[in-house]
């Protein structure tokens, strides 16, 4: 196991980390038997399987469905999930400890794929969703001192004595080689982005006031570029590059006061 390179908060507000690899339609992953062959290689860590519900269009005679949906696999704790389908490979963790561990798991899953039968990859996404909850905070302006002040700028707009009830924003950053990061942030009185009743168990099921820091870092194959060959090493390398801005943006979005909460207070 590789040691983490960045600080690991004992009480991090991370609800889920999702990795998603989009691939051109692969016949070798289209049916259940083919997906089961992948599962055979990783079932030691992901013994539970279930069909992943997907939108399907039925054409032709009744009962004829064009394709089977993806297959979901998960560990016994239901905190680690993998979805394999003809157009995607997805990994989700609701018990994320550090990137190095996640990267090792990614390598483990990708090694089980029929690489020779997948034409390439068109998109890699790595997304961290943090839902920060601190007791006694109800309104956006109360996050002052906990999250970076520039995220709360709009709450300072005079509104004739009215109090801001909800705050939200989205920024997209672009870099070299098609790398982009979408940062979505905001304060809300209720609701969750991460589905507490979804296929995986989430760290919390609270839905009270929270501050969202949702960081979606992705790379997309430019329309004019050739499709890169499916290569485990290349995918892991790109994913590692996607991780760096996520860490930096998250750290820039919070204050030391909040860091102390993540370090000390139990959730």
């Amino acid at each position: 196991m590789t040691l983490p390179q960045t600080e690991v908060y004992p009480n991090a507000p991370l609800e889920v980390v999702a990795f998603e690899l989009r691939i051109p339609y692969a016949l070798s992953l289209a049916d259940r038997a083919a997906q089961a062959q992948v599962w055979e290689k990783i079932k030691e860590r992901l013994p539970i399987t279930q069909p992943q519900p997907a939108l399907q269009v039925t054409l032709g005679a009744p009962g004829m469905v064009q394709s089977q949906g993806p297959l979901r696999m998960s560990d016994r704790a239901r905190t680690l999930g993998v979805v394999v389908g003809p157009e995607l490979v997805s990994i989700e963790s609701t018990h994320y400890r550090c990137f190095e561990e996640f990267r090792d798991f990614l390598l483990y899953v990708l090694s089980a794929m029929p690489a020779d039968e997948i034409a390439g990859f068109s998109r890699i996404g790595l997304r961290y969703i943090n839902e920060i909850r601190v007791p006694d905070i109800a309104f956006p302006a109360q996050w002052d001192g906990l999250v970076a002040s520039y995220l709360l700028g709009a709450t300072e707009i005079p509104a004739d004595g009215l109090t801001s009830r909800r705050l939200g924003g989205e920024v997209e950053y672009g870099g070299a080689d098609g790398l982009r990061v979408v940062m979505r942030y905001g304060a809300s009185a209720e609701g969750r982005i991460v589905n507490a009743e979804g296929p995986l168990r989430t760290p919390t099921s609270e839905s009270g006031p929270s501050f969202l820091i949702d960081l979606d870092s992705y790379w997309e194959n430019a329309p004019d570029d050739d499709l890169p060959v499916f290569s485990t090493e290349a995918i892991v390398e790109k994913t590692s590059r996607l991780r760096a801005p996520i860490h930096n943006l998250f750290e820039a979005a919070i204050t030391d006061q909040l860091r102390d909460i993540f370090r000390k207070e139990p959730r």
Binding site: A18, E92, G125, V194, N195, Y218
Partner: peptide, 27 residues
């Protein structure tokens, strides 16, 4: 934002304002 964010199709991440519309839009 990218038309479909990472991990939006697997049921773990719900985006209330967009998810229902996206499902119908896709169909």
């Amino acid at each position: 934002m990218s038309p479909e964010g990472t991990g939006t199709g697997t049921g773990m991440i719900t985006e209330p304002p967009k998810a229902p519309a996206t499902a119908y839009d896709g169909l």
